[in-house]
Amino acid sequence: MKKYLSFFRVRFLMGLQYRVAALAGIATQFAWGFLEIMALKAFYETDASVYPMTFQATVSYVWLQQAFLAFFASWMVDTELFDMILNGNIAYELCRPVRIYSLMASRNLANRVSRAVLRCLPILVVAFFLPQPYRMGAPQGIVHFLFFLVAMVLGLFVSVAFFMFVYVLAFYTISPQGLRIVFVSLVEYLSGGVIPLPFFPEKVLRVVELLPFAAMQNVPLRIYGGDMEGAEMLRALGLQLFWLVALVAIGSALCRKAERRVALQGG
């Protein structure tokens, strides 16, 4: 456990070193949030009757999405890891006294958390004081907030577990680049990164909701604003748990198989 913590600390320090980059990132994310809300507002003003969420819930959705971008961003794949797998340097990691799967997962987790920690607070604080209609709302209620926290952690784990699955697949494919391109766009779209899932046509949504992609940002971001509650919320949390277990199981099993192969062939 200690080695993982120290790894996290190093990442975090590195993030702090690039303070200007962090500030610029925050500014960029603000601008993105504004632009997104402005577009949604245009649709809301056009015809509020078919708008699938409350407007306030979408505003909170957008700000939370920006604040925790690093948790779920699919383009934040660790290219270093891909390279290590491609050129066989991963074999060196085999010599260290840690499991490859947990090493890669903690590395990925550290990357995402350290980036988000640095950026989420300033974004959220400012978003709470913005003029209407851009102001971020308070959580729907204390229970919602608690479930939001749980779903957030689960969502982060699911997204890390999913990308672990993609990394591990890279062991088995000849074109990790193609793999990355396909999965990056798939995750981005089907997790609600481009438009929130409630804006999907109903029939499509019924299928998409069951996929692992919907178990990432979709659940916490919608619970917060009260767009998801009661039985629907519990079902979504259950699905998050299911996908987390399933993805970790499949990922680590595939990884162990790949490890044995790498060990045999020497990379």
Partner: peptide
Amino acid sequence: GIYFMFLRFKSVK
């Protein structure tokens, strides 16, 4: 994204 939005909304403004 645009396509899905326009399945729901007839126009924007």
